[in-house]
Nucleic acid binder design. Sequence first.
DNA 1: CAGGTCGGTTACCGGCGGGTAGGATCTGCC
DNA 2: GGCAGATCCTACCCGCCGGTAACCGACCTG
Lengths: 195, 195
Amino acid sequence: MAAPGMRGRGARLPRSARRTQLLGAAREVFVAQGYHAAAMDEIAERAGVSKPVLYQHFPSKRDLYLALLEQHTDELVEATREALASTSDNKQRVAATMTAFFAFIDSESESFRLVFESDFTNDPEVRELLDRMQRGCAEAIAEVIEEDTGLSAAEAELLSIGLTGISHVTARYWIQAGRPIPRDAAASLVSHLSW
Amino acid sequence: MAAPGMRGRGARLPRSARRTQLLGAAREVFVAQGYHAAAMDEIAERAGVSKPVLYQHFPSKRDLYLALLEQHTDELVEATREALASTSDNKQRVAATMTAFFAFIDSESESFRLVFESDFTNDPEVRELLDRMQRGCAEAIAEVIEEDTGLSAAEAELLSIGLTGISHVTARYWIQAGRPIPRDAAASLVSHLSW
DNA sequence: CAGGTCGGTTACCGGCGGGTAGGATCTGCC
DNA sequence: GGCAGATCCTACCCGCCGGTAACCGACCTG
């Protein structure tokens, strides 16, 4: 009856395609509502699919959330490492890293909310993922600092934590203020101030 | 039968005393479990009282949480203002403010978790309180910066946001690392680095 | 066409937890 | 004593939502 290649409700998809699609729907809902307010029914509905399908791909709501979160934390650490490796001039390094942070936060999907505004931080595994991300970013930065300045390892670590804090907070402030200036200008302003 | 002045389960308290006691119990539970995982039954039990009593003082779980949160956000803004007013030497101002932040986070009750690790940030009123706190701290700092340096208002604002970010993140890092060095040493190290 | 498998669906369950109804008890006051 | 008005308790309700049981139809394969 229905056309064989039809899209929309009722379309049959191979397993892996369905999985990524479900992850996308879950991201939208979790981003918009947070972990607790999000309902599995709604995620399924947004994917145009019924709930049991969701449970055939992810054993529980929590696991779904963790899969999604890990994906995005890894993304940010990776972006940080790339930015640091993109140049060898330290002043530009700060700027590049700041830009990477701003880009991450400015992404269309607003997925940064998962990472920086999670409402499920009481879960030990969520905590673990977020801590690991923090360590990942800080260590990458600390290596460079330690190498290029005379600071001790402990001081370099602390300083890099501080730098991530600046990026994090200012970038969210910039978003919340409605992106009053272009992204790159904001990033370079902040990096200039912290330099 | 029971002694008239007895303490413990069943003791009758005047309204205002009961209220503050309930707030204390609520703080403990919310701090330990977060908003969502906390149960009103548990808060009541911790206060040695039954649930309806709780509802005679606070119309809903949400209102209870908001009352508590406002109390602590106000506290931090106040501490920041006091620290800034405590001296007129700018370098010492930074140190004093940093110390105030660390003291807030290091408080016995761990109530900073309510403020910095809330899992109820999706609620608009919670957001509003946290934003107001952020603005309160940043504005207080920005006034001083703008007065004592040549920066524009916008730049001063951004810089102060960044400073709160540093304090926030480093102080939590210090706690999480198990307070490896004394509080004042940590605060002055951070203020030295950011100076 | 029989039979397996893969991707789907509808319809349901069960418990957790916020919130409440209604009654018991103490205290102060005349 | 006896009334007024607090304070507090036991016992219950019920809606939401994570998770599941049971079944359906399309497609391939021999």
